[in-house]
Design a protein around this nucleic acid. Structure first.
Lengths: 335, 335
DNA sequence: CTGAAAGCGCTTACAG
DNA sequence: CTGAAAGCGCTTACAG
């Protein structure tokens, strides 16, 4: 029903091989025949069947995405959509398609990875954020299957990854607060055991130390998660603590805008207007709050873009390809 | 390098046809041989090559997504990620993969559609929201290619679509405000020429009429867009209008949470605390505002789910498949 | 209930 | 510079 390569070959009076070579712009074909074949391709409105091409060349020109995240967070955090846009942008430029699959839990992730690899439907995989001792990373490494990771994994040995400088990000946020005159600063951290959590805490700690301020452990919340509930709970805890009643923090460095949102809710409910907050992702709706005075833009689209770039360089066997890339963050300060 | 169907056939002492039939669970194979073949499939850890299968069966078991939306909105509005999750959920259950591609403008959309169709890489397409006289819809219809649309298009003739009852949604929001004692209510609408805009305005208008309140045209903003900028501009307009100085609205029905966010910003900047707002999408960060008193949950995940369901029924040639489906909305009221 | 054979639409050594 | 032929790994009438 569709025009095939053979139809073109017959119409142009050449062999199928020649048409195929014209399509791949082989230097071994004379310009004269190239012109002629291209003309009949136009006339017959021929488009190659990519499935047949994939089978013959054993490459699908498709990459698969695995989120490693419960699907509710996909919509709450603009990070994912932005990173997807960046991936799609690079991939399209290189003629690659992008596939995704949502899932419920870590086993779901692994199932998707196994399906992608075993069915040979993708040439490579991009993982969004890595867990501790990540099953997908272990599996893909063991299979020798090309993949890249957004967010530096536990073991970087042999794995391609892109990430922000998370240390730098909270270091800057904290220094910004200090420059505004704050020095009793609370810190709200991310999930236990993740590099991102550790790095963001370290950045905060270092800034405090460099500027000569001590860290009050009662203002520090680690081993949390990136939810508004956690932010809310932390701030409620601070506001209801009797030991802090005359010695509250004046600022909070959070590790996520959703956390910040929870913090802001607690502040509002308690009519506290003299505590300011910083967050991550520069989410428009969160930044509208007057007490949000800065947010780290992680440049999610760039993270996606480079995760795709490094992956495709690996797939296409560029020998000089780098294994990781740091995307700079940018502290967005409110006027 | 990989185990093929032929390897399995040899190992099990049967023909390739038989292995293939076992894989598709054909009723014409005896249980005894089924068992034996399944055992060797396990032993050899065989997985079918889906690319070869696609070529032979001329079906890729993949659907493609086209957003019809500038990529910045993809991340700002949780709608897209939620709908994608719903699509992925249904598709995975049916053994289908999902592909997407971001783009810059309407021509970009059409390019993607042409690529999807011509390269025969997907079996069907889902369009997110339709434009007036949509080029993609026209093209796909003319090609006879299976597709479904999220959001009722201009011409529904022969096209599969899912949508909310947008009339009902704003009708309910407005009635809710009326029940709270409001009757001078402002309305902020969506883009010109879209069904969604018309329906949402009609729902508002009808509720006002049914309850016997007149509509003050100076409080109505149509032909806008779903951005915070537009919401902000509308509210600034209202607050600065000298003719309204003693006769302001007490409530605003917006057509989107981003609009609502802009409205809230204007209210906050002008220290206006006696105007309440309703929106769409139940965005957590927006709902935190005390003046947001209701938001319509459009159930984006369900919209995605059913857009995939109707599409796959069409692809698989279910004769009794319906052409459209209305996903109920749900007004989320704040306590 | 099972098999031999043709075919899906390309690519790519090999030969000239 | 070009072509004939094999092959990628499946599915599916057709025949028995």
């Amino acid at each position: 029903m569709c025009v095939t390569l053979n139809d073109v070959a017959k119409a142009a009076g050449v062999s199928a091989s020649t048409v195929s070579r014209v399509l791949s712009d082989s230097p071994r074909i004379s310009n004269k025949t190239k012109e002629r074949v291209k003309k009949t391709i136009k006339e017959l409105n021929y488009f190659p069947n990519v499935v047949a091409r994939s089978l013959a060349s054993s490459s699908t020109k498709t990459i698969g995405l695995i989120f490693n995240t419960e699907s509710q967070f996909l919509s709450q955090n603009p990070f994912f959509a932005q990173a997807m846009a960046g991936i799609s942008s690079y991939a399209q430029g290189k003629g690659y398609n992008v596939m995704f699959a949502c899932n419920k839990n870590e086993d779901g992730d692994l199932d998707i990875a196994i399906r992608y690899v075993s069915s040979r439907i993708v040439d490579g995989i991009i993982l969004f954020t890595s867990r501790t001792d990540d099953k997908c990373i272990n599996y893909l490494t063991q299979q020798g299957f090309p993949f890249s990771v957004i967010g530096r994994p536990d073991k970087t040995q042999g794995v391609i990854w892109v990430d922000n400088d998370n240390f730098q990000a909270t270091y800057q946020s904290t220094v910004f607060l200090i420059s505004k005159g704050h020095n009793r600063i609370s810190f709200i951290g991310g999930p236990k055991g993740q590099n991102v959590s550790r790095d963001r805490y370290d950045g905060f700690k270092r800034a405090m130390l460099v500027y000569g301020y001590s860290i009050d452990e009662s203002l520090i919340f680690k081993d949390g998660n990136f939810s508004d509930e956690f932010g809310y709970a932390c701030m409620q805890n601070l506001l209801s603590s009797s030991s802090l009643i005359d010695n509250r923090p004046t600022a909070v460095v959070t590790s996520d805008d959703m956390q910040a949102l929870g913090v802001l809710k607690a502040l509002q409910e308690n009519d506290v207007t003299d505590i300011v907050v910083t967050g991550f992702n520069n989410t428009p709706a969160v930044m509208y709050h007057s007490q949000m005075i800065a947010s780290v833009d992680v440049n999610a689209e760039q993270l996606g873009f480079y995760s795709a770039k490094l992956l495709l360089e690996r797939i296409e066997g560029k020998s000089d390809s780098t294994m990781h890339y740091i995307v700079p963050t940018c502290l967005v300060e409110k006027a």
